[in-house]
Amino acid sequence: MSNALHAALFEAPPQAADAKRTLVGLSRAELTDLMQEIGEPAFRARQLWHWIYHRGETDFAKMTTLAKPFRAALAERFDVGRPGISVDRQSIDGTRKWLLKFADGQEAESVHIPEEDRGTLCVSSQVGCTLTCKFCHTGTQRLVRNLSAGEIVGQIMNARDAIGEWPSPQDGRLLSNIVMMGMGEPLYNYDNVAKALKIVMDHEGISISKRKITLSTAGVVPMIGKAGAELGVNLAISLHAVTDELRDKIVPINKKYPIAELMQACRDYPTLNNARRITFEYVMLKDVNDSPADARALVKLIKDIPAKVNLIPFNPWPGAPFERSTNEAISKFAEIVFNAGYASPVRTPRGEDIMAACGQLKSESIRERKSVRDAAAAH
């Protein structure tokens, strides 16, 4: 399926005719055009940008640098709110997970992971997922639709609300890093993801540096170079296997874009250097991909690529078809990779008690029939 067709089939349904238009997710250019459409000077867009993305204000009445009549007019026609919160759960280790509900009732999850030197937000790009990776709980949920740029940015703004981090601080942030590693394949929703990340990176708004943002893909090879050239964010590859035979089974997109093509796209990734390495994610599955021979093959596979390898102990869910590798097997694997000159940290599972760990995200949203959506759009 082409990226254009994929987007056309799985975009968010249109808003109801009487719904207020949300300003969250509009680019600077779109916000400027909108102000001109309603007869306001272009500088109004910059004022609104500051209030929405730097100060995180959700009430037009409190945007005090705007004239009162203008604030009232905005409130009648527009909205700067957040997604609804269906579930808000906190782990014993401090990890916090939100199940967010969007305007059409569909849901997706985001997770905040606090650490001593950073706070990372794992952000979703789709409701469900199209990839069906065998070790991933999200992959057992069929793709419902792509998230809009506003719905992606809204996850970040919701987290900022929850931790009380408005106005946007420059230092000491509790939310300092963004990883596009939540529900969905970001490169199958590239336009919305790119638009959202450009908003997030804007220095007059949320202002998170591209060096603090990581986009994770299972290997949509044709889009990798485009993402690097246009966004310049860090790249993570969900690899998980060192042979096409195994990867075809556990990461089915490999049948379309095999390992050799994926590795070449990594070698060609713009901005790649020793200071900005590609992260290869490798989930450790007992007696599947965790042998010393697999470790040596992995080292050979990534030779000459500035990289590090994140080893991820498998995070089980009810009915999962795999088991977590033993600590001994993980340690031996990590040692081989490390001795070959690659950092090989073992990711500490976080939020397992609230099903917030890597590969465990899943909402209760269901896929709508396209015929039903088409009928709704016609009314």
Rank of each mutant, 00 (worst) to 15 (best):
T58W: 02
R21D: 07
Y282N: 01
D248Y: 12
N274K: 10
L361N: 04
V242F: 02
F10K: 00
R211A: 04
D290R: 04
V179S: 02
N327S: 12
L298G: 05
L74R: 00
M157D: 01
N274Y: 09
K101Q: 13
I305E: 03
E57W: 05
F280H: 03
I152W: 00
K370V: 14
R276L: 12
L197C: 02
M201Q: 13
A293G: 05
E30A: 10
P321F: 10
L131R: 03
H137S: 09
I336N: 07
S331K: 12
M223P: 00
A7I: 15
K300G: 15
D287K: 11
S216G: 09
I305R: 06
A241M: 06
N189A: 09
T120W: 01
D248S: 15
E281L: 07
V193C: 09
I156T: 04
R28W: 08
S207K: 02
A356F: 11
F10E: 03
P306K: 04
S110P: 04
C136N: 04
C122L: 08
M157T: 11
A73W: 03
P270D: 09
R367D: 05
I224M: 15
K308C: 14
I253W: 00
P69K: 13
V221E: 06
H203G: 08
V144P: 02
A260E: 13
S124P: 07
K332F: 08
A357I: 05
A218N: 05
Y190V: 04
A320G: 11
L26I: 15
E76I: 07
D290S: 12
P316N: 02
P270Q: 03
Y190M: 07
Q36K: 14
I156S: 05
V144R: 01
I85E: 07
M1A: 11
D117E: 13
F280R: 00
K249C: 10
H54I: 04
I312T: 08
L26A: 04
A72C: 01
L301S: 07
K308D: 13
A162F: 01
G182W: 03
D304V: 07
D244M: 09
H112L: 15
S363G: 13
I178H: 02
P69M: 15
A293E: 15
R96I: 08
K226S: 07
A241R: 00
F102G: 00
S363W: 01
L174R: 14
V123A: 05
T120S: 14
A45L: 11
S291D: 02
S291M: 08
D171M: 09
R82N: 05
L147I: 12
E57S: 15
E185P: 03
R211G: 05
M183V: 14
A61I: 13
S325T: 14
S216M: 03
N234M: 10
E261K: 15
I152S: 01
G94A: 13
R211Y: 12
I354K: 10
L311D: 04
Q15Y: 13
